[in-house]
Amino acid sequence: MSHYLGVDVGSVSTNLVLIDEDGFLEEAIYIRTQGNPIKAVQEGMEQLSFRNKGKWNVKGVGATGSGRQLAGVIVGADVIKNEITAHAVAALREVPDVQTVLEIGGQDSKIIILRDGVVTDFAMNTVCAAGTGSFLDQQANRLNIPIEEFGDYALKSESPVRIAGRCAVFAESDMVHKQQLGYKTQDIIRGLCEALVRNYLNNIAKGKEIRPRIVFQGGVAANTGMKAAFEDALEEEIYIPKHYDVMGAIGAALLAKDAEISKTRFKGFGLSNIEFTADSFECSGCPNHCEVVNIKMEGKVIARWGDRCNKWKIVDNGVA
């Protein structure tokens, strides 16, 4: 039986999934990127190879996420796609009649509008990261509540406190002030969830027609408080897929499966023993002063990017 590997390298997490030829998920791995995408991918591959025991026959690899170029080179990806398309593909596979995808990850949040199974509009946060997973994480830390229980606290609230949601800095100072006045923690947390949903709907989803069925995915979908706040604000039922936290990687794997690859570039599961390094230099060939990045495998440059004129391009760097 053939299998397809999907790799999603995001700012906060790196996810790897394996799907079979019918598109069913066989294995999913979720790792914190911690600012080192190369190491995260290698660690993910090591965990996969540990579970593999030779039973998987990988026929194609898809890479996505903000670190998709890098992941693509290291793993040997056949398809490299942006995470918006990948998330839409994964959501469609799980809920064929989906019309709206809400996705909130570590640093990014996005909305994808679909009609008749085709993406018709999307938006992604640009200058502000308020309301994303990192911010919730930080607040949970500050309140000394494990992030896994954060949502349940919110659900216990009977009268949420109003928190300013426009900007993460405003939200935090508002929370601190309300805490000092003695409001209950659960009411503050519920208020924060509502503020973040308000910010999301007014900012990213501004002017978008949100129709059911609505799918909520990305790491933040684990937060039951956020789900409830979305349901209140939209007055619609929100569906959370079973593998909500690795949807991008599933999408990448599905894209690889549909690409009809005759021979994969996959480098195998033994990646963790290979040494990958990256360094950069400034090209002074013209006034552009491009910052060129070298990706090296065992000391040999296997890919380069960052130059505008393709002067430093390596022919056949393994990236389609």
Binding site: S66, Q69, K81, N82, I84, V119, T120, F122, T126
Partner: peptide, 18 residues
């Protein structure tokens, strides 16, 4: 540039599908 490239790629995918 990566953030911009992501949005542009997705936008082009959308237009092609349309």
């Amino acid at each position: 540039k990566e953030g911009l490239r992501t949005r542009l790629e997705a936008f082009v995918d959308l237009l092609m599908a349309k």
